[in-house]
Each structure stands twice: as C-alpha cells, then as structure tokens.
Amino acid sequence: MASVKLTTSDDKEYTLDRELIFQSNLIKNMVTDLDVFDAPIPLPNVTSSTLDIVIKYLKIHKDDPPPPDKPIEKAVDDMIDEDKELMKLEFNIMADVILAANYLDIPGLLDIGCRTVAWHIKQCKDYHEIREKFNIPKELWRSEEEIAEMKKELNGILG
C-alpha cells in the first residue's frame, strides 16, 4: 500500500497509509495534484502531539463513507463514544486540534471539535463561568458598565 510522509513543526517524521491520511482534503489534493510521493510533506502549523490526536481520529473513522454536504443540524449528543473519548482534552490542545483539522481540511474532525467546544460553553451558567473555563485574559473582558449597557440594548432588541 502506498504511503505518505509528513513532517511536523517539531521535525518528527510520520509515515502513514494513503487511505488513512486521504481523509484530509489538503493532503489528498497535494498528493494527487503535485504527484509528490517520496518527499515528506512539511506541516509547519501542526505539532507532533496534535498530529497524534488527528491520527487517532483518522483511525476511528477510516471506514466511514464520505461525508455528505449537509448543514449543521445534528445535536451535540449525536457524537459517537470514541469521538467523545478522543475529545477529552485540555482547551489549548483542543484549539490546536481544531486548527489542525481546519488546516488539513478534515471536515469531520473540525465538526466534532466545534461541537465539543459548544457543549462546554453550554455547561456554563453565565459569562463569568465561560471566562473562567476558557481562561479569557482579564484585559479582554468588557467592563461591567459596558455589559450592563449591552444587556439593556440587547433586551430592547430581543424583547
């Protein structure tokens, strides 16, 4: 079976089956368009620890049929258990995984990443909790007066 070589930003080299890594549209297009088979493909935006998680995802989903083009409609709870297990990550790692999925163009992984973040936001009762949970730095917070003003304006609009 033909394989594809990848190099991560921290100079680790991976050799993966084509079928596995071709779930990434970026790699698929690169390999089929440019005909690069032997030279390793550099991934300057992806670290090896992130790629490990991405590969785990690819292994879970290697037998999936190609995803249909459909809008976001499914609820968060529709995720399969393996994906839920995979997404039990620190937020900074999860953000890296989402960015890597976006960069490598793996729609399925991007999708479950976004859903998981949405699920975490949903567990918060108010904006203080969201700030705490996601470690939003204090200098980016809106002031309390600003928030009161925004709330008033929004309540006027949303009724």
Binding site: E90, F91, A95, L99, L110, L140
Partner: peptide, 22 residues
C-alpha cells in the same frame, strides 16, 4: 494556557456558536 479558544479564527468561532443555536 491563556490563549486557546481566542486563537481560533472567526469562521471557526462562528461554527462553534452555530451549535449553541441548534
């Protein structure tokens, strides 16, 4: 750990927030 979710580009944030509404 300070920057994680804030590093995401706006279109990914928008996709996350879409899930809050569905």
């Amino acid at each position: 750990t300070k920057f994680d979710i804030l590093e995401l580009p706006a279109e990914i944030l928008a996709q996350i927030f879409q899930y809050l509404l569905v």
